[in-house]
């Protein structure tokens, strides 16, 4: 019995002391480790997107960031990989809205290419060639592009250009989507099949329909309304959802989003909207919706 208790006891004590010590050190170093990780991430992001005052917003974890300045989308930063000579080559690329490369960065710490040869893809002298190029130019010179490969390291050089080019192909289309306003996205969702033609700002023609967007100050903030007209009559209206920034009082102003209120508009001409009864207890919100429809209609000048 004694042979059994003593070893158990010793092992438990050793385990407890060790765990205690580790959790102490862990808590002490954790903030520092996180700070470093964030710093090095921000560093490489601003390295490939060298524009003063941009902020990066993560879209796909560890893969795609959108670079914004004063609310405007300036471009994206993406991470892509391809198979090199003896492992994976990872590239971090900054891309502007026209699809031009701002800068390419290859982190050395995950690079396993041959030192002195393939490793040179991480050097500035090779990477600076990418800046200013567009997708179709990102090939080695021997493949008809504009990049001088590294002597005796063609596989690594080609893999790097492939990673950059494929990344642009994968993520460039996202810029458009990321810089869209919520109502532009919503309209696309409402008419997924049809081609959308923009007539002027916030007015679109979709087949035989005219769609416009307008917003008006409500009780808790701006209320945005998308109006779909067919034969000059309202076919459909969509009111901004809370996720899209709608912020009226729950149970009162929020009722303007309910079917009961929305259905009153269907089939009416926009100029007749004024006569529709508002919601009791939510006059400001209902008026905002009505005014948005009327003012938006004035904006398009009643044109077809």
């Amino acid at each position: 019995m004694k042979d059994f208790i003593k070893p158990t006891f010793v092992l438990v004590i050793v385990g407890i002391v060790s765990a205690g010590l580790l959790s102490f050190v862990y808590n002490k170093t954790l903030p520092e480790i996180e700070k470093r990780a964030k710093e090095s991430l921000n560093e490489s992001l601003s390295l490939v997107f060298p524009v003063e005052g941009v902020e990066f917003e993560n879209v796909i974890p560890d893969t795609l960031w959108v670079a914004k300045k004063d609310g405007n989308v300036l471009g994206i930063v993406f991470v892509n990989i391809s198979k090199g000579y003896s492992g994976i080559i990872k590239v971090v690329v900054g891309l502007d809205r026209e699809g031009k490369i701002l800068k390419v960065f290859v982190p050395k710490d995950v690079l396993t290419e041959t030192p002195g040869l393939g490793m040179k893809v991480a050097e500035e002298s090779f990477l600076k060639q990418f800046s200013g190029l567009k997708k179709e130019e990102v090939y080695l010179k021997k493949d008809g592009g504009k990049i001088d490969g590294i002597t005796a390291a063609t596989i690594s050089s080609r893999a790097t250009t492939n990673a950059v080019r494929n990344g642009i192909e994968k993520y460039f289309s996202k810029i458009e989507e990321l810089s869209m306003k919520w109502y532009e996205k919503r309209i696309k969702e409402l008419f997924p099949e049809d081609s959308i033609e923009m007539l002027k700002e916030n007015v679109w023609r979709i087949k035989d329909r005219i769609v416009y967007y307008s917003e008006e100050e409500g009780y808790g903030g701006k209320i945005g309304v998308i109006v779909v007209l067919k034969d000059k009559k309202i076919e459909k209206i969509y009111i901004q959802s809370p996720e899209e920034g709608f912020d009226e009082t729950e149970g009162f102003g929020s009722k303007v989003r309910e079917e009961e209120f929305i259905s009153k508009f269907i089939g009416k001409r926009p100029e007749d909207v004024k006569k529709i009864d508002g919601i009791t207890g939510a006059t400001i919100s209902s008026n905002a919706v009505k005014n948005a429809i009327i003012n938006g209609y004035k904006m398009i000048g009643g044109e077809k």
Binding site: S18, L22, V25, I33
Partner: peptide
């Protein structure tokens, strides 16, 4: 039980070094 105990002790110090290195 000496082997498991040695491993616990050693790995404790290794982990400490690992954390400190990562942080600083």
């Amino acid at each position: 039980l000496r082997i498991p105990i040695f491993i616990i002790v050693i790995s404790t110090f290794v982990t400490i070094v690992d954390y400190v290195m990562k942080g600083y």
